[in-house]
Amino acid sequence: MGKDMKLDRKNELKEKLAHYLFLFNATVAIISVAAIAFFVFYRGLQPFIPGNAEGTYSLIDFLTGLEWRPGEGKFGILYMIVGSLLATTGAIVLGVPIGILTAVFIAELAPKWIRTVIKPAVELLAGIPSVIYGLFGLGIIVPAIMQLSSQPQGQSLLAVILVLMIMILPTVITITESAIKAVPDSYREGSLGLGATKLYTVFRVVLPAAKSGILAGVVLGIGRAIGETMAVMLVAGNPIAGLPTSIFSPVRPLTTNIAMEMSYAFGLHQEMLFATGVVLFTFIIIINLILNRITRGSELK
C-alpha cells in the first residue's frame, strides 16, 4: 500500500500563514524607509515652495550660502556641506588604509592568539556609543590639537577627521575581512604554488579578488562618517559662518547643524533644519546607490 497523499489543509494553511507573517515583517522596514523619506522631504522642501505659510527661502541661497544666522534669516549651508565632505574624505583617506591593512593582518597573517585579541577589540570598537567617542575626542584629541594649532580652540576639522577615522575602522575592518575570507583558497594556493611570497599573494591576488567587497566596506564607512552626529558635534566647533581654511579651522557638519538647533527651532528656522536633513539624506541615497552598483557587480561575477 502506498502512503496517504491526501491534501493536508491544515499544513497548507500553516505554510500560507507563515508566508504572510514573513511578508508583513519585511514590509516594516520598507514602510519605515518610505515614511522617513517622505516626511523629511515633505517638511524640508516646504521653504522653497512659493506661498509657504512659514515664509520662503531661495534654494540657491540655501545651497551656496556661507552663513547660518537664523536670527537674521540667513540659512546658508554650503560651508557645512564642505565641512561634511572634507571631514568624511579625511576620515576615509586615513581610516581606509589602516582598516584594510588590519583586515589583511587578521585574515591572512596574524597568528591565532593575536587574532583572538584583535577581533574582539574591533567588535568592541563597533559597539561603543558615539557619544563616548565624542568624549574621547573632547578629552584627548582636542587638547592635543590645541598644542599644535595656532587657533585658540582645539575643536576643528582635524579633530572631526580623527574621531571619524576611528569610528569607521570597525566597518571597514569587518567588511574587508569577510571579503578577504570569501576569496577561495585555490587562488592563494595557485599563487604560493608559483613561488610567490605571502605578501605578493595578498596584494596581487587576494585583495584584487576581494575588491568589490572592500569597496562596499569603504562606501559603508563613508555613510557612517557623513551621518555621524553626536561624536562630531562635541569636537567640531560648529561655527555659524565661514568655509574652513585649514585643518585647524572649526567646522559645522550638516548633522550637527540639525542636532544642535532642532530642540528650540520653530517656523522657517525649523523647516530649514529639515531642509538640511534633505541634503544629508540625498548624500546617503547617493552612497547607497553606489553601494548597490558595487555589490551587484560582484554578484554578476
Binding site: P184, S186, E189, G190, G193, P208, A209
Partner: peptide, 9 residues
C-alpha cells in the same frame, strides 16, 4: 590543482 584555479584576471 584538481579544480582549475586561474586567477580572476
Amino acid at each position: 590543482f584538481q579544480k582549475p584555479n586561474p586567477f580572476p584576471m
